[in-house]
């Protein structure tokens, strides 16, 4: 298949950036989107041009490194798929594909399609951990955990921290990411002890970093490659409210 790519090119954070158009012929429909980008880059290199910079690592949808805004949606047109898992067969022959980096004040562009997602790490650093050493892995069922809780905690823990929720949100809000991390810990006994303080610290950090405010549009849930539910946002709203009402102080 032949495609036309409109790709955002930006030398560095200070550069204004602009779109460049590339015609790519004989693209295999079985290629992943990133393999197609590799193919484009090999062509650019052979022509003596600068290749397009993009983030990637595992290429099997579990690391959260890749993240490209494709045709108006983070990770492209297929739901529940990261950019690395997206196949070219989801595009039409001769289609123009618009490729942009995540856009958010909290995610400044480093180069081309690579953005700095340190803000998400900063939120984790603010409270996304358990303060005490819980030791090495315990025997299974040594700590009794209701099945429902462990299932829900796992549903939240599937978040790979790619930032697609921020990219998809009209307001550039990180609520789904923060909510998933808050729930993943708060639902389990080891994390429950600090749950109230954690939610306050993580929300405070999220606000500080310049992410937008959630207005319950739920584009995050729709475009999350891991199908993290907006139920966790509601849970975080609930947890934050009760932590404020109970006046649990942030240490």
């Amino acid at each position: 298949m032949d495609i036309k790519l409109k790709i955002w090119r930006q030398k560095d954070a200070a550069d204004k950036g602009k779109f460049e158009t590339y015609d790519l012929k004989e693209v295999s429909p079985e290629m992943s989107f990133l393999e197609m980008m590799d193919y484009l880059n090999s062509k650019l290199i052979s022509e003596g041009k600068e290749p397009v910079a993009f983030d990637h690592d595992c290429r099997e949808g579990i690391c959260g490194s890749c993240g490209i805004y494709i045709n108006g949606r983070p990770h492209g047109p297929e739901r529940g798929t990261t950019t690395c898992e997206l196949r070219m067969r989801f595009f039409k022959n001769n289609e123009t594909i618009v490729v942009e980096p995540w856009r958010s004040r909290a995610f400044p562009v480093i180069k081309d399609l690579i953005v700095d997602r340190t803000s998400l790490d900063e939120i984790i650093k603010a409270g996304g951990f358990i303060s005490v050493d819980t030791g090495s892995a315990k025997d299974a069922n040594c700590i009794p955990i209701p099945k429902n809780n462990s299932d829900k905690a796992f549903d939240a823990a599937v978040c790979v921290g790619c930032g697609a929720c921020v990219a998809a949100c009209k307001n550039s809000s990180a609520m789904l990411f923060v909510a998933a991390k808050v729930a993943q810990m708060g639902l389990l006994p080891q994390g429950k002890v600090e749950a109230s303080i954690r939610v306050q610290k993580m929300v405070e950090k999220m606000d500080e970093l310049g992410f937008g405010f959630c207005s319950n549009i739920l584009a995050c849930e729709y475009d999350c490659p891991k199908h993290v539910s907006s139920e966790f946002i509601a849970k975080m709203n609930r947890d934050f409210f009760s932590s404020k009402v109970c006046k649990q102080k942030v240490i």
Partner: peptide
């Protein structure tokens, strides 16, 4: 974004 946002909301 330059492309119109297409998330179904």
């Amino acid at each position: 974004y330059k492309a119109p946002m297409r998330s179904e909301v």
